[in-house]
Design a binder for these strands. Structure first.
Length: 927
RNA sequence: GGGCGAUUAGCUCAGCUGGUUAGAGCGCUGGUCUCACAUACCAGAGGUCACUGGUUCGACUCCAGUAUCGCCCACCA
């Protein structure tokens, strides 16, 4: 067999990902006989590329999906893409500019949308391909797009239904306006940043020549749109002003002084300028007091008409300077002081939001919020980790209406028509041609589109065919878990829960698994401007997708941010390489031996004393996925007289590992699950098991022994790759298929086509052999102790040492029996340990499991080193013993602590004391 | 102004419902190209678990507070 010494992921990974796709390995179908396990993949932007956040979340999802698929579920991972209104539209606009094409405005709606579709079609498939390179085992045949016909139908249905139910309305309100996007955005799309700004005090003189009032503002430029000054009704300073008019500086207008208890008397001057069209509070005040609401900033936040002519066309910040300058000149700028306040920024374009009075579509959220809150409160939907539920509650409890209209072109156009003849508004499932009220035919559809999230909040059911009652909807819905970052709890997660409950009456998913966000090495967000991003594709190219996945899973504590440094991927690569070489080792003798065995089949079977079918089926590789066979394999091996301690030990460790993996997977601690597999593979299987069985495969071993040994080791290998497959799908598929080939003529028909479809190892009906585990642990401790002596005393590795054990040591028999192992691993000489009645002269002494063992040192080392080693050991022991002594002297501890804890401490005390005594005696001897 | 998280070895992080000799990877020190793997092996050093109190026989783990860093929410102009 041709197996490369170094594992090279590149070709292997591409090959398998194409093979999986070609063979429909991940395709699912509704099947009532099988339990479904479903995850909705958060749809990435159509024009997007894979970034580390995707890589993390996808790996988590894929590991879950693959795990449950192997556990026998119909595991469906629903993929798709989001049209991402604003993001996509600006990508296309930028591209037009770059290519010196006409602008959006020049092209007009229809032509522009054609351009967008061109870009979308060109990019379609890019991110999907990248996700496949990562190993995503989604059912790609069921991919959906938020703008495809089905989803558009769902969006339309939802809009009309909510309109009919009175939850969607249209009207003039203050919205968050992004001058850069030239569109309204929702509250959630505004980022607040604390900023050091200024508070300016401006005098509004009385119309009668009196001093008037001084107002304080952070936005002097908006004064040009003021229609009142308000003071607190009880404020003695201003009581006499209420009802009077003041002059609005820089204009020829006069405005009234009104009283409203929304005013905080202690802030600023206690007098507030009121700009109803450009401030949410002032808008409310304006409504209460019936004030005019002149709009003085246009959609680009430039000064416009009712403002005095000399300011018109000025950008808002430019206008601020001009206004301040002019006020200064007129002596009306009283003072300016520093003032920190929160400024809203457009989440996407990072320009300051302009509160702006405009007519938009809104959705009442309160009625939807109640049930969504209940489902989480009642535990029907659980967040992992739980603390995110608080964030969810807080948002829903204070939820405000959702501004859903956007002044964009790319998206679902609002299904509302206005009759030019009678102003009637129609919201319809099918495009109307005639006004239902006046019969007129001059209908005009609303120009705006819906917020992107208005389609994605339907994702868990719209992708499954809703509003039609499809078999998919019945079978896959509700889904099991949603995996996402905490950054879109409001945007998406909470809204999905609301929508699903409202429209299907079901929860969208049972669990919300919140991942952390990927940060750079210094804990900063990865961003293009900082240039600190790590490209997952580059990492896949360099280290392999398995390595990237390994790293991301291991670093991922639920809900905790991850500081990522590219060098971290080395651990994944190294682990893959380790696994590969372990496989190479157990596989290389396999072909030869097994072929030979089969050639001598009858003879061998005869020796084994079993019928051919029995033996073949029991030695079948499927063994470790079938617990009931597992034990029998071992029994059989033992019956043949090939009874090895290490086999029973590693089997025990495997059982423990499988149990731990299952347990940790249930808790969504994929990091722990993977670490358990890692430890088993590297520390137990590679470091101890393989090292121990080497003699059984060497030249001195019989074919029969080598054969059974290889069988057993290959079975272990198979168990390992199956355990590991959910996390590292490529290398495990590669090894699995190799194992299948090695098996050659034996029971091929029983093997799954892909490891992805093989059974996950189970421990059903199996228990670790406790005695074997204890015995092997002793051997490990013994070997480690000897190695420690060797290491500390700098005994050259090539030099073989001797081992002497006391006759009364209860482990004598065990050490004799396992001498081959001990000898090899500790590099000892002799055919057996020396059995002595007392300590040999000039020996290093170490204590293993309560008994001394000796390494005669004559000719090996100087005794100073041994003295130093023993002193170190004694100091350590004394420290530990001190703590235990203290506890046991304390009556309260002895009386109050549980018996087993006290017993445990007593045992430890005895052990440590004995060990200490032995070492001290030894130290004395050394002089 | 509320809320949340973090603070454990030089670095990045685990440590579940209080009792472990407080762990891992990387890095570091010493030794090995030992016939699966130098992307490796063996041995080792390194931590008053941010601080202060409290609860408890016992606290890295629970409670209160302090400090530093970070995040989210919030219409005081």
């Amino acid at each position: 067999m041709d197996i490369p010494k170094r594992y090279e992921p590149k070709n292997v990974e591409t090959q398998w990902s194409e093979w999986w796709l070609k063979n429909d390995i991940f395709k699912t179908t509704p099947n009532e006989e099988i339990q479904p396990y479903v995850i909705m993949m958060p749809p990435p932007n159509v024009t997007g590329v894979l970034h580390m956040g995707h890589a993390l979340q996808d790996t988590v999802q894929d590991s879950l999906i693959r795990y449950y698929r192997m556990k026998g579920y119909e595991a469906h991972w629903q993929a798709g893409k989001d049209h991402a209104g604003i993001a996509t539209q600006s990508v296309v606009e930028k591209e037009l500019a770059k290519n010196r094409m006409p602008t959006r405005a020049e092209l007009g709606r229809e032509k522009f949308l054609e351009e967008v579709w061109k870009v979308v079609k060109r990019n379609d498939g890019v991110i999907t391909k990248q996700k496949r390179a990562l190993g995503d085992s989604a059912d790609w045949s069921r991919e959906r797009f938020t703008l495809d016909d089905g989803l558009s139908k769902a969006v339309r249905e939802v809009f009309v239904k909510l309109y009919e139910d009175g939850l969607i309305y249209r009207g003039p309100y203050i919205v968050n306006w992004s001058p850069k996007l030239q569109s309204a955005i929702s509250d959630e799309e505004v980022d607040h940043k604390e900023e050091e700004g200024k508070l300016w005090h401006i005098r509004y003189p009385g119309t009668d020549g009196s001093p008037g009032v001084v107002v304080a503002t952070t936005r002097p430029e908006t004064m040009l749109g003021d229609t009142a000054v308000m003071v607190h009704p009880e404020d003695d300073r201003y009581k006499n002003m209420i009802g009077k008019e003041v002059q609005l500086p820089l204009t020829d207008r006069t405005i009234p002084v009104i009283a409203d208890d929304a005013v905080d008397r202690d802030f600023g001057t206690g007098a507030v300028k009121v700009t109803p069209a450009h401030d949410p509070n002032d808008f409310e005040v304006g409504k209460r007091h019936n004030l005019p609401m002149p709009i003085i900033l246009d959609t680009s936040a430039k000064m416009c008409h009712p403002a005095p002519v000399r300011y018109i066309g000025m950008d808002r910040f430019k206008a601020r300077e001009a206004v301040l300058e002019d006020l200064q000149e007129e002596g009306l700028l009283i003072r300016e002081e520093k003032h920190t306040h929160a400024v809203g920024y457009c989440h996407r374009t990072h320009v300051p939001i302009e509160p702006y009075l405009s007519t938009q579509w809104f959705m009442k959220m309160k009625p939807l919020a109640g049930p969504a809150l209940d489902k989480v409160r009642e535990g029907e939907i659980k967040f992992v980790p739980r603390r995110w539920e608080k964030v969810y509650y807080q948002w829903l409890e204070n939820i405000r209406d959702w501004c859903i209209s956007r002044q964009l072109w790319w998206g679902h156009r609002i299904p509302a028509w206005y009759c030019a003849d009678c102003d009637h508004v129609m919201v319809k499932r099918d495009d109307p041609t005639v006004c239902e009220k006046c019969g007129g035919t001059h209908l005009r559809q609303d120009e705006d589109v819906l917020d992107t999230w208005f389609s994605s909040w339907l994702w868990p059911f719209s992708t499954l065919g809703w509003p039609d009652q499809t078999p998919e909807l019945k079978y896959y819905h509700p889904t099991d878990v949603l995996v996402s970052g905490y950054d879109i709890i409001f945007f998406w997660i909470a809204r999905m829960i609301m929508a699903d409950l409202y429209f299907t009456g079901q929860i969208p998913f049972k669990t919300v698994y919140i991942t952390g966000m990927i940060k750079d090495k210094l804990g900063r967000w990865m961003s293009k401007s900082l240039g600190n991003g790590i490209d997952p594709l580059e990492m896949i190219d360099q280290y392999g997708a398995d390595a990237v996945r390994y790293c991301l899973i291991v670093l991922n504590t639920p809900g905790q941010d991850i500081r990522l440094d590219p060098s971290r991927f080395e651990m994944g690569r190294n682990f893959a390489n380790k696994l590969w070489n372990a496989f190479r080792f157990v596989a290389s003798p396999a072909s030869a031996i097994l072929t030979d065995q089969l050639d001598r089949a009858e003879e061998i079977l005869d020796e084994l004393g079993a019928s051919p079918n029995q033996v073949l089926s029991m030695l079948d590789f499927q063994g470790f996925a079938r617990p009931e066979i597992n034990g029998k394999i071992y029994d059989l091996i033992r019956e043949t007289g090939v009874d090895h301690l290490e086999d029973r030990w590693i089997l025990g460790r495997l059982i423990e590992t499988i149990e731990e993996v299952d347990n940790r997977m249930e808790q969504y601690r994929l990091d722990d699950a993977l670490m358990a597999i890692y430890r088993f593979t590297w520390n137990d299987f590679c470091d101890w098991y393989i090292e121990t069985i080497k003699p059984r495969l060497g030249d001195d071993a019989s074919i029969q022994e080598a054969g059974t040994t290889t069988r057993f080791a290959l079975n272990m290998m198979e168990a390992i790759v199956r355990l590991l497959h959910p996390f590292m799908p490529f290398i495990t598929e590669e090894i699995y298929q190799h194992l299948g080939n090695i098996e050659g003529r034996v029971l091929q028909e029983d093997r799954a086509q892909s490891i992805a479809l093989a059974e996950f190892p189970s421990t059903e009906g199996m228990k670790p052999d406790k005695d074997a585990v204890a015995d092997f642990n002793y051997i490990q401790a013994l070997v480690s102790a000897i190695r420690n002596v060797r290491g500390e005393l700098l005994i050259p590795p090539g030099k073989e040492a001797k081992l002497a054990i006391l006759e009364r040591d209860p482990h004598v028999e065990l050490v004799q029996r396992e001498w081959t192992t001990v000898k090899r691993l500790a590099r000892l000489e002799g055919d057996a340990p020396d059995i002595v009645t007392e300590k040999p002269e000039k020996s290093a002494t170490t204590v293993v499991d309560g008994a001394e063992v000796y390494i005669p040192l004559a000719g090996l080392i100087d005794f100073d080193a041994e003295r130093a080693r023993v002193t170190k050991e004694i100091n350590k022991l004394e420290g530990m013993l001190l703590g235990i002594d203290k506890k046991l002297v304390n009556e309260k501890f002895v009386n109050n602590a549980p018996d087993d804890v006290v017993k445990n401490e007593r045992e430890k005390q005895a052990d440590f004391r004995a060990k200490l005594e032995m070492l001290k005696a030894h130290q004395e001897q050394l002089g």
